[in-house]
Amino acid sequence: MAKTSKNKRTFKRKLINKYRLVILNEDTFEEKLTFKLTRLNVFIFGSLFSILLIVGTIFFIAFTPVKEYIPGYSSSKLNKKAADLVYKSDSLQQIVNVNTIYINQIKELLTGKIPEVIFDRDSILQTFHVDRDSVNLEPSNQDLEFRQQVEAVDRYSIFSEATKSADVVFFSPVKGTLTDGYDSQKRHYAVDIAVEVNTPVKSVADGTVIFAEWTAQTGHVIIVKHAGGYTSIYKHNTALHKQQGDLVKSGEVIASAGDTGELSTGPHLHFELWNEGYPVNPTNYIDFE
């Protein structure tokens, strides 16, 4: 203990011992400057200088154009050019739409599909012009009455499965393990099939794609309309291979299974089957295993 205490006193004495820094003229040995320092002062001044240097460097980079040379930062000039390009592309798209309508009308006029009429590009442009101030967004009395009727009706009161005989032969969209089944009481009008990511998802029957878009809750979703009033829905896909309006054959790959959307709990396919606007239990029509 005595040795430890002695070491502490020695260390403290070394910190506060005074030293003199003298700057001499080499030829005349005349003292020009003299500084009285201690090791503790040198340590404090050195730390303060380092902190000031770091803070100054951060402010210099943050509030000067130097930050534009750091990877990940974009210059304001570049952002302005990007915004200008977006506006120009929108304007060009509108011009293309106008020219397309104008050319189609000329084709119909030349082929005799429409009688000769007087039209020009200016009249077509007027069809794209909408006065925002003149648009009335307030619902009419009829709209309000219709909304009240819809809200008053229990849209999920009838969930008896379709009694029509299945006049369409359905094939399994994927092969896997059913992790969650159809349950109308819990309003889970689908079956969840566990599959690996990028597993090919196939159309259960011939039909037409009526929806193929991204949604925040269910990820990539594709909906196919089939004969006999049936509609199949495929959710949580990682990619879609068909677009709205495409005709698909039974067993044709239309998407890749995944784990997208806020409601997804893991890689799987959320599959729904509807008939005439009512949900049906897919397991009554398809063998998924």
Rank of each mutant, 00 (worst) to 15 (best):
F63D: 10
G56R: 10
S134G: 04
D133N: 07
E26D: 15
E108S: 11
G56E: 13
F43A: 15
L109P: 00
S89A: 12
F159N: 15
Q142E: 12
F63G: 05
I101K: 01
I118F: 02
R155P: 03
I51C: 12
E26W: 03
V66K: 09
E30N: 10
F63K: 13
V98T: 01
E145D: 07
L33T: 09
F60W: 14
Y87C: 03
K88C: 04
E116F: 06
L33G: 03
Q142S: 08
S134M: 08
N141A: 09
S76I: 10
E116P: 02
V98K: 03
L125V: 11
F49A: 14
L40I: 13
N141T: 09
Q142D: 08
Q93W: 09
F45H: 12
Y87R: 10
N25L: 10
I61R: 00
I70R: 05
I61V: 14
F63A: 13
I106V: 11
V135M: 09
I114K: 03
G56C: 15
L24M: 09
L137T: 12
Y102G: 00
L53G: 14
A62C: 09
D27G: 05
S89W: 02
F49D: 12
E161R: 11
N41P: 00
S89L: 02
L40D: 06
G46A: 13
H129P: 02
H129N: 11
D84H: 14
Y69T: 07
K80E: 14
G112D: 02
E30Q: 11
D120S: 14
F59I: 12
S91A: 10
N25Q: 12
I158Q: 08
V98W: 00
L110S: 12
I54H: 09
V42Y: 01
L110D: 07
P115L: 04
D143W: 04
P71H: 06
E161G: 11
L144T: 04
I95A: 12
F63R: 14
T111Q: 08
P139M: 04
D120C: 10
D131L: 02
K80N: 11
L137R: 06
V66H: 07
P65D: 05
D122R: 14
R147N: 12
V130C: 05
G56Q: 14
L48S: 13
Y102R: 01
G46L: 07
V42R: 03
G112F: 04
E151F: 06
I95R: 03
L24G: 00
N104S: 12
T57V: 15
L52D: 12
I124W: 01
L24N: 09
G72D: 00
R121W: 02
L53W: 15
G46K: 01
S50T: 15
S157Y: 03
